[in-house]
Design a protein around this nucleic acid. Structure first.
Lengths: 320, 320
DNA sequence: TTTCGATTGACCAAAGGTGGACGAGGGTCT
DNA sequence: AGACCCTCGTCCACCTTTGGTCAATCGAAA
């Protein structure tokens, strides 16, 4: 399979606009004023960008977003840009959560959310996919999950309960979100020595969106995910964990609030599982099972931030 | 199933128009100006297109929609077009596939199938995704579905029943195939005037892979798909069909072999549905419901070829 | 006879390119 | 503190290229 060389100039400016989220005028201005990129030209003068050009533009955008001047950033090479962006991230990263998430007033998580919900109401698959895809270019993955997908699921749940939406709307949205999260997760290629995490839902728990979100989140944290879908009995969860030599098992529990069989399943899982394998449980109804979870020594997480923290702790056995 | 060779030229331009969603004038313009396809001619000068030509036109349409100029796209071969589109569609992913070092020879459906099954046995998500992705570039979509995915589902089903595989393997494979089919479907951007097809599974039918395959297949035939996932009661199917002004509803029935409630649901669906909306039913267990299907005037299809044929017939209201 | 398809040439909307100007925001100078 | 200036995203006017569509005409097919 002949791979296309990265430095082959072949993208017209329209494609670059879609992939970078920058406006065409701006791209040209950066080129004119700072020689930020220097695309080659077609015989008739059209700009042709290479993959490297696009990558560079994305980096430049991130650098500018992080507060650098474009005139300064444009002079740096790829590696310098990368370190610069990495430096900027951890500090203002969490602090920037409230105002961030927009690119010059264009794409805000709230606006995306509104469009998505409207698309769901109209049962418009194409529009919903389009909105999500477009947002994914502009928003970071964390924002995407925490500010768009999670609120969207909640809104849909609410609208469904109050009768505004039918099950078909909820089904359609689930299918689209599922695909989207699946792509999100598989876009992350874990390092080869990454610890394995089994993600699933216990038997009789059919709602898998929570598990998918967990999978996508853990993937961004550098875990290698084995996603098993919903509704799996404890024997199979344990077998899978052992076969893959997993470091941990993540379960999402959404419903019902109380089910003694589920508590039994959890105990059974713990008993069958290698004691070195940790269990993390989250989801809407996880709180109702606190006693059992404590009993079996599972990490119970109330939200994604806690989940991420738990993952970080699990990763480094020394710090337990 | 006697295969018709893909490169046999036999479709008049009208068929190509219906299958690709392109206007006849445009198809001819592409040929005239860019030699985008070069159909053979009948004795009297009529254009005759092969399946490969049609596939190529669909790919070209997608490339153009992704922002490529037709003049540029027309110069590429099938494989290049596929990579291009695949690259444009999903998240402008960070890392690209590693260079293919093995597989220097031909990619055959059988070899892919074997590697996939081995990956499932090893519960190796990454490898399975990699194999599918790689195969998708080399194989046509129809081959991919009929020679890889469908046999794979059957093999897994068999291995599961004979106890070689656990439910966790089956779950993992389902999740991956589901994502993959979802991407396959959404990679096909239907033309805007394409007729809508609702795809789902009746209530209590939880296996959705059949429905997903139907969705992906119909998408390649130029339908606009509203995929609703599994397990939907008739009221909601009907409501969705009416809200989107669908032309037809496709249902996949896999199990159980006999269920009187399902028969009732089918009757109810037919009663609630606008008589102009057709119902197509397929799946492993569809045969067991022949009487009901005949009673409600549903099209019952035994395999994907029949399904495609039924879709083609539905599309042209004149021929009903 | 009506419909479909082929051909040709023309038309025009959309996308892209260029150069220039504007103006909000943030300094600096005297 | 007011005048000045710099930075940089945006907008505009005007042009070229690209490419989808149409109309007119004619032969073939159903």
């Amino acid at each position: 399979m002949a791979d296309i060389p990265f430095d082959l100039a072949r993208h017209p400016i329209g494609v670059v606009v879609r992939r970078t989220g920058l406006k065409p005028d701006l791209i040209r201005a950066w080129e004119r004023r700072y020689a930020a990129v220097e695309p080659s030209r077609s015989a008739t003068g059209r700009r042709l960008y290479s993959d490297l050009d696009i990558e560079r533009l994305v980096l430049l955008r991130q650098a500018v977003q992080a507060g650098r001047g474009i005139s300064h950033a444009a002079a740096l090479d790829k590696e310098q840009l990368r370190t610069l962006i990495r430096e900027d991230r951890p500090n203002p990263g969490p602090a920037r959560l409230p105002p961030a998430d927009l690119w010059n007033g264009q794409v805000t998580a709230e606006a995306v959310l509104a469009s998505c919900i409207s698309a769901v109401e109209r049962l418009d698959v194409i529009e919903l996919e389009l909105q999500l895809e477009r947002a994914a270019v502009a928003l970071s993955q964390i924002h995407m999950i925490e500010r768009v997908l999670v609120p969207m699921m909640h809104s849909i749940g609410d609208l469904w309960q109050q009768g505004t939406l039918r099950p078909s709307h909820e089904h359609m949205a689930s299918a689209v979100i599922r695909s989207f999260l699946g792509e999100m997760r598989s876009a992350y290629q874990p390092p080869s020595q990454a610890p394995h995490l089994i993600v699933t839902t216990p038997a009789r728990q059919h709602h898998e969106l929570g598990a998918l979100i967990a999978a996508a989140t853990a993937a961004t944290e550098g875990w290698s995910i084995v996603y098993l879908g919903p509704d799996l009995p404890p024997e199979d969860i344990a077998a899978a964990a052992h076969q893959r030599g997993a470091k941990a098992v993540a379960l999402s529990i959404t419903f019902p609030p109380d089910d003694s069989r589920l508590a039994d399943d959890l105990r059974r899982l713990r008993r069958m599982l290698d004691p070195r394998i940790q269990v993390v449980v989250g989801g809407r109804s996880a709180g109702h099972y606190e006693p059992v979870l404590k009993e079996i020594g599972a990490h119970s997480v109330a939200d994604l931030t806690e989940f991420r923290r738990a993952l970080a702790k699990l990763r480094v056995p020394s710090s337990v």
